[in-house]
């Protein structure tokens, strides 16, 4: 692989295609009379009016709140369950068939069920998001704990390192590269389920707003909502990457030194 160029060059490469696509959309849709595909210019103007108004907060904030609660609960539970399961073969043998079954259930089908006993409030949505996000985190944590280095494990034992220090200084960091893989996979799942759960039964949220616009044939508004979701996805993934770079710096350095050596 060629050496990475200077920063401006990299930014230019990264932005080339998005800019081209937006430009193409802008030009081809300019002056569009088609009701379903309004000019991008109109969509952008609507976007500004709609999502930079205080009113928008009443849809965006509940959505992000539900996402955060569901995602973080899934992260916590996935790691907390994954560590003992990864460490114990017996536990794996007992749990694996059940986990495989639950994982095979598409999370959106839980929405009607959860409405029955969790209502149509935030709890139901957070539960749906959690149920979808937990599997990649859980399964990757299990794989990460199983892949812990044996020599390192013996080192930990021979120095009589206690349970808590073992978890904090060995198990968690050792499994963290795979845990982060799971967390990254869970991110888009969480966003999808956030929108889907709001489309079913809600009185606010981005998903709810989208359905409202669609039903009232407010097409520019609907399109702008879709763009907003894309932007939220990118921002979340940038935040995620910043955290990952900080916590997994050692891992990327290690990999690089192994490739070089």
């Amino acid at each position: 692989m060629s050496a990475l160029g200077p920063l401006p060059r990299r930014i230019a490469v990264a932005l080339a295609l998005p800019v081209t696509l937006i430009a193409a959309w802008w030009i081809t849709s300019a002056g569009s009379e088609n009701f379903y595909f309004p000019p991008l210019q109109t969509i952008v103007q609507t976007f500004g009016k709609l999502w930079f108004s205080p009113h928008a907060l009443s849809d965006v904030v509940p959505s992000l709140w539900r996402f955060s609660v569901g995602y973080l609960a899934a992260a916590f539970l996935g790691i907390a369950i994954g560590i003992p399961v990864g460490a114990s073969r017996n536990l794996r043998n007992v749990l694996e068939p059940v986990l495989e079954f639950f994982r095979a259930i598409p999370p959106p089908v839980l929405v009607p069920v959860l409405i029955l006993f969790a209502g149509i409030g935030n709890e139901m949505k957070a539960l749906v998001i959690m149920f979808g996000c937990i599997w990649p985190v859980l399964l990757n944590t299990v794989a990460g704990v199983r892949a812990l280095d044996e020599v390192l494990a013996e080192t930990v034992r021979s120095y009589r390192i206690g349970r808590f220090a073992r978890l904090w200084h060995f198990t968690l960091p050792g499994a963290s590269p795979l845990i982060f893989t799971g967390l990254r996979q869970a991110l888009p799942i969480g966003i999808i389920l956030m929108v889907v759960s709001e489309m079913f039964a809600a009185s606010d949220g981005i998903g709810f707003a989208l359905v409202q616009y669609q039903r009232t044939f407010a097409l520019p508004e609907m399109w702008s909502g879709i763009i907003l979701l894309g932007i939220i996805g990118i921002v979340l993934s940038l935040i995620f990457r910043a955290i990952e770079t900080r916590l997994l710096g050692w891992y990327h350095g290690l990999r690089q030194s192994q490739r070089a050596g």
């Binding site: 013996e154 060995f170 891992y251």
Partner: peptide
């Protein structure tokens, strides 16, 4: 179990040190 007054140095130095520390 591992005795308290004993230390072990393994052959695989690359795998016996914590790469995140």
């Amino acid at each position: 179990g591992p005795p308290p007054a004993m230390a072990v140095v393994f052959q695989e130095y690359g795998r016996s040190l914590f790469p995140w520390m």
